[in-house]
Amino acid sequence: MASRSKLSGIQRQVLALYRGFLRTARLKSPEERHRIESVVSAEFRENARNIDRKNFVYIEYLLRRGKKQLEQLKDPDITGLSTLEINKVYKPLNLK
């Protein structure tokens, strides 16, 4: 890609969610922040590599799940990543 084309709506949602996680991570302790950033970055990049970009149903599902996880993480009493369920197994067929 020579230059960035205009992002689709769902792409913007993904990036907005990513920004939200990074912003929230700042509010945690430095050690925990680094851990959150690593996990979130790995999760987003793995999804970017493995998921068909046409699979809108699954992407929207992941967006909804991500938003819920982010809301949990925003709780000041949440100090760690234990509430984040990192699901490494992708079974898009299960959605149907």
Binding site: S3, R4, L7, Q11, R12, L15, A16, Y18, R19, L22, R23, R26, S41, F44, R45, A48
Partner: peptide
């Protein structure tokens, strides 16, 4: 840099310069 990298760069710049970048502005940065 992919789009995720660009988000991280903008976040880093926000912290360095103590500013807040709107999402629409961030997406226009190339």
């Amino acid at each position: 840099a992919d789009s995720l990298d660009t988000v991280e760069i903008v976040m880093g710049l926000e912290e360095e310069f103590h500013i807040s970048v709107e999402e629409s502005s961030a997406q226009s940065i190339a």
